[in-house]
Amino acid sequence: MSSTTPRRTRTSRRLAATAAAVALVLPLAACGDDADGSSDTGGGAGDGAGDTTITVLAAASLTETFTTLAEQFEADHEGVEVELAFDSSATLAGQAVEGAPADVLATADSRTMDTAADVLAADPQVFATNTLVMAVPAGNPADLSGFEDVADGDATYVVCVDTAPCGAIWAAIAAEEGVTSQPASLEVDVKAVLAKVTGDEADAGFVYETDAVAAGDQVETFEVPGAEDQVTDYPIAQLDQAGDPELAQEFVDLVLSEAGQQVLADAGFGQP
């Protein structure tokens, strides 16, 4: 017994050294994975009785609405659990192609849905649309009177980088409307743009209508001229690898139903 004591001390000292080394390396390791891609599962966990599970991969911007819809679906289907995975559309489409065990895929634009064309069990159906709006911090501290003040003025505004769908829409509108000013920053995703606006670091930012609705009274919005020509479509489809194709179909039907459309409309989505 007594012979183990020094050994244990040495082990704990070694552990402390390891912990210190890990602490040194941690901030370096964390660099890569901090933006975008909030992955989450929700819904269904509380029911307990679920013996059938369907998995829905959905774009991050659908987090609130699909959580509500999943709860409705579980209420209507005794013993069925809906697993939700939210991430950026491109990531989810990639996972679907690589055979992720999922039943339904819903993305934030047709381009990403097209990349998963090989594993779709049915033609994708557009269930919602989203438009770009100009968001300003609550109280409009820079006293902007509309899009023109940003397009030709010296307001500090932020947009999405043009590799992100929201940035591609901005670039098209900026070209169409002849915007002469430069944004202060090209943010990696729409949530980062919204954060700069709600934090009042920028006078204005260009986000989706639904993001502005989700931000509530933290932001005020202005219409963007030409935005109605740059609407982004949200398609949904069942996957080849669906474990229960009938249930997958029923979930898609719920999203397209009047009740489903109402949930989406309340969140600021447009009707297709």
């Binding site: 890569g32 933006a35 932020v158 980088v161 944004p183 943010e187 980062a192």
Partner: peptide, 11 residues
Amino acid sequence: FGATITFAGNF
């Protein structure tokens, strides 16, 4: 990367 893009932006 993380602190830069959060605090300073990306232009």
